[in-house]
């Protein structure tokens, strides 16, 4: 029933705009059939350009190649690539109803009318839009529009689905719900999906693999777990989640720094800085054996937890999280333990 998912390969794909701006440095990327690959990065990092290269909305600079299942499609425009695309603004046609929007790709492909109707009905049912079939698109809410855009892209049964920040235009609560739905949908269809976002939580939740991009280059490719726990660079470490950085020097029995000593397993490289995430820090009950000593500078109650800034005498204060029930005052002395397996040296 579902089409065979597509394997996509980019070879040496760079993109320079007419004004000389380099949007993308030469990029090699393998996208496996059926996986959900998330392109993640700050604005201007080249993630949307990469998506548009795959879609066929942009052409790579000379020498770059786009391969679909090993076949070179570089010269083909988007209309000949048979990929589904969901745009950030949805790009729904204002002159058509919901059903006409969803059926547009089928109409272009000249499917028999009966088949077109059946498929549109199927998509409307799946997206729970049956009651809205004859509405104009300007009579829809944001979430409904998003669904129509998805349904329209999927109605032609593409072998790959490209999504350009599809949730950015929605409010936060709806975003969470729809993110989960899209995840289930993509997995249920088994389709190759390429998803562009600047939201790391979205990337973590959706991606089989994440490509973190910065300044037109790939900073790291890996599973969400890899990216979070084994960031390849300081940029990735800082971009994904919160990261503490402590300067000091590696010694025979750990890592000496302002405020104490971290139990760093020997690296053999003479580390000058270590990093760790807030969740790997525990507030120590026993003052004598704690790794670090410091002073609380600020405390933010977040409902499910309390976020503390702790000054240990280094340049930047540490970010630490504690259970919401503990209260801390600025100026209060605090002792911390950092899990040794949470320590990162780059």
């Amino acid at each position: 029933m579902n089409p065979v998912p597509l394997a996509i390969r980019l070879e040496g794909c760079a993109r320079t705009f007419a004004d000389g701006t380099r949007a993308l440095e030469p990029l090699d990327l393998d996208i496996r059939a059926g996986e959900t690959l998330v392109l993640l990065g700050p604005s201007g990092c080249g993630k949307t350009t990469t998506l548009r290269l795959i879609a066929g909305l942009e052409r790579p600079d000379a020498g770059g190649r786009v391969l679909f299942d090993g076949e070179d499609v570089t010269a083909r425009g988007i209309e000949a690539r048979h990929v589904g695309m969901v745009f950030q603004s949805y790009a729904l046609f204002p002159n058509m109803t919901v059903a006409e929007n969803i059926g547009y790709g089928l109409r272009i492909r000249k499917l028999p009318i009966r088949e077109q109707r059946a498929r549109v009905g199927e998509m409307l049912a799946m997206m729970r839009l049956e009651a809205l079939a004859d509405r104009a698109v300007d009579q829809l809410s944001g979430g409904q529009r998003q669904r129509v855009a998805l349904a329209r892209a999927l109605a032609v049964r593409p072998r790959a689905l490209l999504l350009d920040e599809p949730l950015t235009a929605l409010d936060a609560q709806l975003r969470d719900t729809l993110r989960m739905e899209i995840n289930l949908l993509l997995r249920g269809l088994g389709i190759t999906a390429i998803y562009v976002t600047h939201d790391q939580a979205e990337a973590m939740a959706l991606g089989d693999r994440i490509v973190v991009m910065a300044h037109g280059r790939v900073a790291q490719v890996g599973t969400p777990r890899d990216i979070y726990h084994r960031p390849a660079s300081a940029f990735v470490a800082d971009f994904i989640g919160t990261m503490n950085r402590v300067r000091g020097s590696e010694t025979a029995d750990g890592f000496a720094c302002a405020g104490g000593r971290l139990r760093l397993p020997p690296t053999g490289r003479g580390a000058a800085a270590v990093m760790f995430r807030p969740e790997d820090v525990r507030i120590a009950a026993d003052d004598e054996t704690a790794d670090l000593a410091g002073t609380v500078t600020a405390s933010f109650y977040l409902g499910d937890r309390t976020r503390l800034f702790v000054d240990i005498g280094d340049e930047c204060p540490l970010t630490v999280e504690s259970s919401a029930r503990c209260t801390f005052r600025p100026g209060q002395a605090i002792r911390l333990n950092v899990q040794p397996d949470g320590l990162l040296v780059l």
Partner: peptide, 9 residues
């Protein structure tokens, strides 16, 4: 671009 992605020339 939306129309093109659905195959329209």
């Amino acid at each position: 671009e939306g129309a093109a992605s659905l195959g329209a020339g």
